[in-house]
Design a protein around this nucleic acid. Structure first.
Length: 934
RNA sequence: AGUCGCGUAGCUCAGUGGUAGAGCACCUCCUUGACAUGGAGGUGGUCGGUGGUUCGAUCCCACUCGCGACUACCA
């Protein structure tokens, strides 16, 4: 094995081997375990959030595969209607063309071409991340079979009256020229004005003041509303006003919607351009006067001089004319929330159009019940509330989009514009008895992308067919996703899954945190703080990184700022870390917190961890006499010869079993951070720091000190056995390095198999707890740490061997000390070990306490008395503080009376221990001070 | 306005009704044959504030200050 861990080469090689052998496919036996991937945009690239979630999904997948489950991680991509269409339109724009210069067919051809060209990016990124998805089942939301599912779902919902077509106000994007659902609206708080306008009475006897943030909409006013209980205006109800600039007469109406305390207490009502006004208009039978074109310019329903003006231009003109007419009573600065399209960023308009809607309440009801009944569980649990909040206030879902890229709505219109819904045109004709001479025209619109996403857990498994996959893998086991798409996706999958499959789509929903940059900012192109996960894996020089971050920006003027920040943050570029280090970082980061700051220094730490593991494997291979990779398993025959396990061997097996138990619990609870921590601590602090060191006296000693062959054999077996099992334990989080090491360790450990990914996950039952070994090694560790502390604080060179004396040793202490002398010599740098008889005068020494045993390091020639006095002083202060605390507690009668007996006992023991320490340290300190004064 | 969350070491974060933890950073020492991407030792915190419940609160409750996310709405 190479001295330094070099991930790059081995990761590609290993992944190709896994994939070419088809090992990612479900094995066909065991309990089904299934995760469907949240399908990324087919033309997109994976960002840090994807890499994070994929790590967790892959860890679950590999873990369950190794547990023997029939495991499927279902891959796929999403056509992402608006996003993809926008990208291709931008490409056309760059060529000086518009979408509408092309036919629909030609444009779609172009989008498909772009999809083929860029669609492989995601897959290759996923391969680099080690994602063990079953590529043979790769799906795309616009595959023929998935498109069939979309049509089927639409038709069935329509048949049940759960999809309807209606003319009502929608969120209209005047730039993209399409309707949007409520969820695609981003409310932004912006500075604006509140104009107070005078509307004169018809008879010229005065006026009322209305306040508005959108004066241009006055041209579409149908009424002015006041609160029926508002004394100021009650007598005006029913009177007519003459709408300025138009001369139209509009009534004053009464509606409790009006808040008398806000503004003037009079509200202009524009039913065609405001959601609240729309409702009021319906209640009062008001005219809906649409004054905008689809691009939000004024249309023919306004006085001629305003026609064709853009809405913002119109606002200026109208305010100017009203001001000239003396009808602007006041203008206040006002903060308002402006609705913008989440893709285009354009200010949206409530706009009257014909659209298709999903009647959502009947679908939401069972979806709420399913979570209430615990048939689907949110992890962390508190997201349940968010889900309920939204589901209980949900409004009908506008699913039609005026785009070209997507699933075309399966509705046909006759010449009178009457719609017929069906699976295809011939079904429509036969069902409705439409003769061949009746001209039918299919709806031009497509469905919201999320409509097909909502079917994903079952459309990917063959629905509407009744396939074996569907029977096996639905419901899926867990959905792993971010909280940002609970409404967009999770809730809709719940509704559609229950509707069409009669069962929830997933048992658990694990909501991950959001990956932020190291300052706690969202990663975005415009902020220039995006990191490509593969740049962490492979590393990237500074200049290419800057180029990557500043190219193709929506706002190129920010480029210099981004460049500066990048230079500051990564003056040396980004070093290569390898996939395993990145994955381990993500796992370690995955606490239940909803925001997770990504810190590159953490990845460096886990890269070091990989290197540590690598070198531990090298040590084991050397110690076990590695015959090289690919060696036969013959050596395992040696295992039948007598072997004797040392206390250290028994200890590490026991500790490994405990660790695996912790990891099992962690995986069950989706606490990847706990799993990572347990694995990290075991590997580094127990296996490397202690166990490997404890094997050295056994394996490396020669001459009369040499251990027996049986003991050596026992240690070698344990070394390779734990190393091998550790690779299995680490594999779900770090698939590559563990495969590489396992290939060498498995034959040494007498295991045969083509790959670690198909081996069984270690079980705590195979590594039972050995309390006795744990106690004994704990004693050893305490002893060694005590001597090391003295050595460290006194700056005794590690190469300097020192004598150690023991005072107050019990029979057990003496036994341990004698039996483990070789460990103590090696790990604590001890030269001679002498047990003092009671009453013997000890030389001046630095001391440490282990229970009642005192460890003495003679000071002569080694230790500076002043330094020792200082060290003891610090220890004394600590012991005194702790003693004081326990005494306060124990002197409290209520504590002794009310606290559980075990707690009181522990406290008494602590008191005794600290008393002993204080006495001993005080005496020792006096002696050392005596030396100083002498 | 509603819902949810956060505030713990210099930084990023775990955590528990009974002895406050990790990584990174920092200080001292060490190139000993797995590993300097390393080893040994160490410094560092009135757990945002106030009050309550409790024998005991960083943890539970109330209030409060600061920060954030989401949802709805402000004519």
């Amino acid at each position: 094995m190479d001295k330094v861990y070099a991930p790059h080469e081995l990761e590609r090689r290993i992944y190709e081997r896994w994939e070419s052998h088809g090992w990612f496919a479900p094995r066909g036996e065991g309990a089904p375990y299934c995760i469907v991937i949240p399908p990324p945009n087919v033309t997109g690239t994976l960002h840090m959030g994807h890499a994070f979630q994929h790590t967790l999904m892959d860890a679950l997948t590999r873990y369950h595969r190794m547990r023997g489950d029939d495991t499927l991680w279902q891959p796929g991509t999403d056509h992402a209607g608006i996003a993809t269409q926008m990208v291709v339109e931008r490409q056309l724009n760059a060529e000086g063309r518009k979408r509408t210069d092309l036919t629909r067919e030609a444009f779609l051809e172009r989008v498909w071409k772009w999809k083929e060209q860029s669609g492989g990016t995601i897959a290759s990124q996923m391969r680099r991340l080690g994602d063990s998805v079953d590529w043979s089942r790769d799906r795309f939301t616009m595959d023929p079979q998935l498109s069939r599912a979309v049509v089927e779902a639409f038709v069935r919902l329509h048949e049940e009256g759960l999809i309807y077509r209606g003319k009502r106000l929608v969120n209209w994007d005047p730039v993209l020229l399409t309707a949007l659902s409520d969820l695609e609206v981003q409310s932004t708080e912006e500075e604006g004005h509140l104009w107070h306008l005078s509307y004169p009475f018809e008879n010229g006897s005065g006026h009322v003041i209305v306040a508005t943030t959108r004066p241009e909409t006055m041209l579409g006013d149908s009424a002015v509303a006041v609160n029926p209980d508002d004394e100021r205006y009650r007598h005006l109800i029913g009177k007519s006003l003459r709408l300025p600039l138009t001369g139209r007469l509009i009534p004053i109406i009464a509606d409790t919607y009006v808040d008398p305390a806000f503004g003037s207490g009079c509200v202009k009502i524009t039913p065609a351009h405001d959601f609240n006004d729309y409702e009021i208009g319906l209640r009062h039978g008001l005219a809906q006067i649409n004054i905008f074109t689809p691009r939000a310019a004024l249309n023919e329903n306004v006085p001629e001089r305003f026609r064709g003006l853009d809405r913002f231009e119109a606002r200026k003109r109208i305010v100017a004319e009203l001001t000239d007419a003396g009808l602007v009573a006041r203008v206040d600065k006002h903060k308002l929330t402006v609705p913008r399209g989440d893709r285009s960023g354009a200010v949206l308009e409530p706009y009257l159009t014909d659209q298709w809607y999903v009647k959502i309440a009947p679908l939401a009801e069972p979806a709420i019940a399913a979570v209430e009944q615990g048939r689907t569980r949110f992890v962390p649990e508190n997201w349940t509330k968010t889900y309920f909040e939204w589901m209980r206030n949900i409004k009908d879902w506008c699913v039609s989009r005026q785009l070209w890229w997507g699933h075309r709505i399966p509705a046909w219109y006759d010449e009178q514009g009457k719609p017929y819904v069906g699976r295809d045109e011939s079904e429509v004709r036969s069902r409705h008895g439409l003769a061949g001479n009746v001209t039918l025209r299919q709806d031009e619109d497509v469905l919201d992308t999320w409509f097909s996403s909502a079917l994903w857990p079952f459309s990917t498994q063959g629905w509407p067919g009744k396939t074996p996959d569907l029977a096996k893998f639905y419901p899926t086991s867990v959905l792993v996703t971010g909280f940002d798409i609970i409404f967009f996706w999770v809730a809709r999958m719940m509704m559609m899954g229950l509707k069409f499959m009669g069962e929830v789509p997933f048992r658990d929903v694990y909501i991950t945190g959001l990956i932020l940059d190291e300052n706690g900012d969202k990663m975005s192109k415009s902020k220039g703080n995006v990191i490509d996960p593969l740049d962490i894996v492979d590393g990237i020089e500074l200049e290419p990184l800057i180029a990557k971050r500043t190219s193709g920006m929506m706002q190129p003027q920010l480029a210099s700022k981004v460049e500066k920040a990048t230079r500051k943050q990564f003056p040396e570029g980004i070093a290569p870390h390898g996939t395993d280090a990145l994955r381990f970082t993500f796992a370690a980061l995955a606490s239940p917190s909803r925001e997770l700051r990504f810190d590159l220094s953490r990845v460096a730490g886990y890269r070091n961890f990989c290197n540590k593991l690598w070198n531990a494997a090298r040590f084991v291979a050397m110690s076990a006499g590695d015959p090289g990779p690919g060696a036969s398993v013959e050596r395992s025959a040696a295992a039948s010869q007598p072997a004797e396990l040392s206390v250290a061997d028994r200890w590490i097996r026991s500790r490994f079993g405990r660790m695996v138990g912790t990891v099992e619990t962690a995986f069950r609870d989706y606490r990847f951070d706990y799993a990572a921590t347990a694995l990290y601590e075991f590997t580094w602090y127990e296996f490397c720091d202690w166990y490997l060191e404890l094997t050295k006296p056994v394996l490396q000693a020669s001459g009369p000190e040499s251990a027996s062959e049986a003991a050596k054999r026992g240690t070698r077996l344990t070394l390779v056995g734990i190393l091998e099992a550790l690779q299995r334990a680490l594999h779900p989080l770090m698939p590559f390095i563990t495969e590489e090491i396992w290939q060498r360790a498995a034959p040494l450990a007498g295991r045969a198999g083509p790959t670690v990914m198909l081996e069984r996950y270690p079980s705590p039952a195979d590594f039972p707890t050995d309390e006795q070994a744990e106690r004994e090694v704990a004693w050893l560790q305490a002893f060694i740490l005590a001597v090391r502390q003295i050595r460290g604080e006194m700056n005794i060179a590690p190469s300097k061997r020192i004598p150690v004396l023991l005072k107050g040793a019990s029979v057990r202490d003496e036994d341990y000390a004698n039996r483990h002398r070789s460990y103590l010599e090696r790990l604590a740098g001890i030269d001679t070990l002498t047990v003092l008889d009671p009453g013997t005068q000890a030389p001046q020494s630095a001391t440490a306490l282990i229970g009642e045993l005192t460890v003495l390091v003679p000071m002569a020639g080694l230790i500076d008395a002043a330094a020792e006095a200082e060290r003891l002083g610090k220890l004394l202060v600590k012991a005194q503080q702790e003693l004081a605390k326990t005494r306060v507690k124990l002197s409290n009668e209520n504590f002794v009376r009310n606290a559980p007996a075990a707690v009181v006992t522990t406290e008494r023991e602590r008191e005794a221990d600290f008393e002993r320490q204080v006495t001993s340290i005080t005496a020792q300190l006096e002696r050392v001070r005596g030396m100083l004064n002498a």
